[in-house]
Design a protein around this nucleic acid. Sequence first.
DNA 1: AGGAAGATCTACT
DNA 2: GTAGATCTTCCTA
Length: 182
Amino acid sequence: MKDPCYVARNLLGNIIVRKIDSEILTGKIVETEAYYGKKDPASRAYKGEKNYNKPMFGDPGKLFIYMVHSWWLLNIVAHKENEVGAVLIRSLEPLNGIQKMMEYRKTNKIFLLTSGPGRLTQALNVTKQFNGLDITRETSDLFVAEVEKRELEIVSSHRIGVTKDLPTKLRFYIKDNKFVSK
DNA sequence: AGGAAGATCTACT
DNA sequence: GTAGATCTTCCTA
């Protein structure tokens, strides 16, 4: 039960694992954004609990998937007890199964595979079917593996593409990583 | 039933 | 740098 801001920083450097058929796709999380509930006008949870944002009000450690402009965006629910919030995964550094990701993305340019919230979901073949999935279980088809982090240089900035941002800097990324979107 | 929006991406100038 | 594509969900009538 941690604050979205804390979780967003903590997720950087961890590995997302996607099991698909016999293949395993993995990528390192290099960029995240934190979203809150009622006090955040950019959040999907701003207007209270609805059908489409239910996971944000539920247990932390679950997936929250939402569609914008025909792309699926992948969030991880994270908040303190009795609060609301989630962390958006904005970009990954592809590690394993790059061939497979290129098939899904229909491109052979590696920096176009996962450097954007809509891109990485397509590269991992993630859709709304994973909404609400528990990403802390290694038996899931999609989960996050904690890794030991060594001296990550984390940079914060304002969120991207958000029409009504908060004064706080809620976007975090690993410094000098070329897979961070711009 | 229909329209509008939205945490985006790509292609073109 | 700007415009157009694209599509699911929600809101209003």
